[in-house]
């Protein structure tokens, strides 16, 4: 039975007709055309689909679009500033070569931003544990961990200086 779902995605209100069985990730990819959020598994483990829902990192493959009715969603496309300036975490992933094939990257970055927001002073161990819900097959995690630590520092340093679109959206 098709139904209409309305939510805020990357700061914009969107409304689409969907089947009730539509997952949030498919809503984002197929209905809104935001294909940056990926699907890497079907058991809620790989984290390629991580987005922020009302400011919390969640796996968009494990929630129905109708469950996100009225919510605010931020995807990887909504992370950089309006002028294209990369979010400090995105910039850190580039600087520290925290990505190779790029497929896990959107979920990894969204998880990392959430992790850094909640923990002002992360340790390597906390980063490794904090990313247990995101699988990367390319990097061996070494450079992802470096990137997240650097990105978290940059977020700390930049806090108060500017409000990334993502923060405002949350």
């Amino acid at each position: 039975m098709p139904t209409t779902v309305t939510m805020t995605v990357n700061g914009k209100t969107v409304s689409r007709e969907v089947e009730e069985r539509t997952l949030l990730v498919n809503f984002l990819r197929d209905k809104i055309g935001l294909t940056g959020t990926h699907v890497g598994c079907d058991t809620s483990q790989c984290g390629a689909c991580v987005v922020h829902l009302d400011g919390n990192a969640i796996k968009s493959c494990s929630i129905l679009a109708v469950q996100a009715e009225g919510a605010s969603v931020t995807t990887i496309e909504g992370l950089a500033a309006a002028d294209g300036t990369l979010h400090p975490m995105q910039a850190a992933f580039k600087e520290h070569h925290g990505l190779q094939c790029g497929y896990c990257t959107p979920g990894m970055v969204m998880s990392a931003v959430d992790l850094a927001k909640r923990n002002p002073s992360l340790t390597e161990q906390q980063v490794r544990q904090g990313l247990e819900g995101n699988i990367c097959r390319c990097t061996g995690y070494h450079n992802i961990v470096k990137a997240v630590l650097a990105g978290a520092d940059a977020m700390q340093a930049g806090a108060g200086e500017r409000q990334p679109a993502e923060m405002a959206a949350d």
């Binding site: 809620s44 483990q45 991580v50 990192a57 969640i58 796996k59 494990s62 929630i63 992790l115 819900g133």
Partner: peptide, 9 residues
Amino acid sequence: IGDRQVRNL
């Protein structure tokens, strides 16, 4: 429980 994203839901 699970991972952070699972705990958020």
